[in-house]
Design a binder for these strands. Structure first.
Lengths: 127, 127
DNA sequence: CTCTTATTAGGAATTGTTATTAATAAGATA
DNA sequence: TATCTTATTAATAACAATTCCTAATAAGAG
């Protein structure tokens, strides 16, 4: 995915180090505020740019729905979604059974959502 | 969740009707553009406000991670997340097996993510 | 019908994020 | 080590998605 060579900088290193030693899934602002304490002239854009680059390079992971705006669903019955990486369409699919025993030590599950990513069959045909 | 009485308006009815008869998971702008054809003086704020209200009332569903900004995870090994509705913390949990046969007719899965929502044990103790 | 107040249109303001630009510095090569 | 190329930076402007604000409107209870 990376189209240009990458250089390591102290800013990028700090961002990466912070994320690799965190377990609380910070957002960009949080990373910025935290690292600004060590590097007072760190820029917000640098944080955003590096977070984008690092997740593009799969060194870190961006959480959440990989779409630019929020989407709404009029169908409230239990079901999941498949998001096509190519055409961007969101498809409904059945609610799969899922084993939750690994979650029980953490808390009580009220709901869960599953997002599948891939290429839909329509787009596959075109390629 | 609704703290004030609700009134039905033709704007809200149109938004709801549109969503209930859609299967393509539109975003706010899409709903706005579509309904503006019938109601030329419909306002964008009205669409946003009603989408928020309707999903608060669980009449429709807002997709994606229920947080205001994007979060990043330095841990790239396969795992899922539990989001506490009370304290907002995001916990890691193991990657569960999931049956994907219902998704196969739609497309080829490359990855998937599972988000569990509930109340963590820390918050349960406090209540 | 009347009254209360939730809801509206319209636009301005805010927020999360990205683009721009000149200056800087990583890392390859000599 | 000195030099060169160019990815990266800080700062800020620009941007797009969303929310807030205000006076006017209209739902629906009495």
């Amino acid at each position: 995915m990376a189209t240009t060579p990458r250089r390591m900088t102290k800013q990028k290193a700090a961002i990466l180090d912070y994320l690799k030693h965190s377990t609380h899934h910070p957002d960009a602002e949080c990373v910025y505020q935290e690292l600004k304490k060590q590097q007072p002239d760190l820029s917000r854009s640098t944080v955003y740019r590096n977070l984008a680059q690092l997740s593009e390079d799969q060194v870190i992971e961006k959480m959440g729905l990989q779409t630019e705006s929020d989407h709404y669903d009029g169908n409230c019955s239990p079901h999941n979604h498949f998001i096509c990486k190519k055409c961007g369409r969101i498809f409904d699919c059945g609610k799969e059974e899922i084993d939750t025993q690994q979650v029980e030590p953490i808390g009580s599950i009220e709901t869960f959502t599953v997002y599948f990513y891939g290429v839909c069959h329509d787009c596959e045909k075109e390629a």
